Amino acid sequence: MQPIQQAFEPVSICFASDDNYAPYLKVAIYSLLCNRNRERSYDIIILHKRISREHQGEILGLADGKSGVSIRFVNVVEADRELQSDVGCYYAVETNYRLLLFSKLFQNYRRMLYLDCDIIVTGDVGELFDVDLEGKSAAGVEDVGFRWLAYTKRAIFLDNKPYNVLNYCTDVLGIKDPGGYVNAGVLLFDLEKCRQKVSFRDVVETLHSRNFFYNDQDVLNILLEGNIKQVDCKWNYMNNIAFYLECDRKEFRELYLDLRREDYRIIHYISAKKPWNGEVPMGEVWQKYADE
């Protein structure tokens, strides 16, 4: 595959999706564009292997009449075989496509903001794109679900063996500080620094070295350990935060008290239940943009 050429010097954003998620991707991009800085440019890349022309047309139409906005679909079926794996707790192989950011496909990009499809943007992502990484290769938000998993000692399994999430990080992933583990739904990459430290071959070999529970999220945390700047949770406000802050059990509320935010910029709807298939915490925000 040939490297993608930048459309302009923009806020560069990458999504990955399949046809099933395309309607929800449309809502995510719509919310992003509603809250963009009109004085800046936004270059949006969508990696896929089979999004229908109908869905592509609807999403491309979001850029109509908006100056400085480019939306492009890039079919990565040629790379699909390299990234095929047991996707662990995820639902589709397309989650692995964010690993292509380490490939020659993006060699013309200096920085890239990766976003999952199951989000709503309520602030300008350009502010996150501009974050000073202080010499790090990437930025992300603590995976706050680990707090509950560690407290309850609920097991996660690898090769039919149970692990506490902290032991999973240290014993399986080889991560010295589990507190540095980030959620991969919102990530900012300095691709120049990433390319200096990690090759795409490193990424593929690590992906296939074991059937990781969190799949490519684990791979990213392994390869960039100690090289990820943690940013405020407002940039990846996982809706389970709202759930635990309002739950009946005091000990769970206390686990998440420091994460309460009123100025969140990106809401991330984690787990299998989404605002389009059931009632979830903060689902009303997604519904507002979906209705529009």
Rank of each mutant, 00 (worst) to 15 (best):
Q2G: 04
E9Y: 00
A16E: 02
A16I: 00
Y21D: 13
A22P: 09
A28R: 00
E39G: 10
R40F: 00
D43L: 00
K49L: 07
R50I: 02
S52V: 06
V69F: 13
N75G: 07
V76E: 02
A79D: 14
D80F: 13
R81L: 07
A92Q: 08
V93I: 09
E94Y: 13
N96H: 15
F102P: 02
Q107Y: 02
Y109D: 08
L113N: 11
Y114Q: 05
D118W: 02
G123A: 15
D132K: 12
L133T: 10
K136E: 06
A138C: 09
E142Y: 11
T152E: 12
Y163F: 15
V165E: 03
T170G: 02
T170P: 05
P178W: 00
G180F: 04
V186R: 06
D190P: 04
L191N: 04
L191K: 08
K193F: 03
R195M: 08
K197S: 14
F200W: 13
V203P: 14
E205F: 07
L207C: 04
R210E: 06
L220R: 04
N221R: 04
N221E: 01
G226Q: 07
C233N: 15
W235Y: 14
W235F: 12
M238Y: 04
N240W: 13
A242P: 00
E251K: 12
R253H: 11
Y256H: 03
Y256T: 08
Y256S: 03
R265M: 06
I266M: 01
I266D: 01
H268V: 09
H268C: 12
H268P: 09
N277A: 05
M282R: 12
G283R: 02
G283W: 02
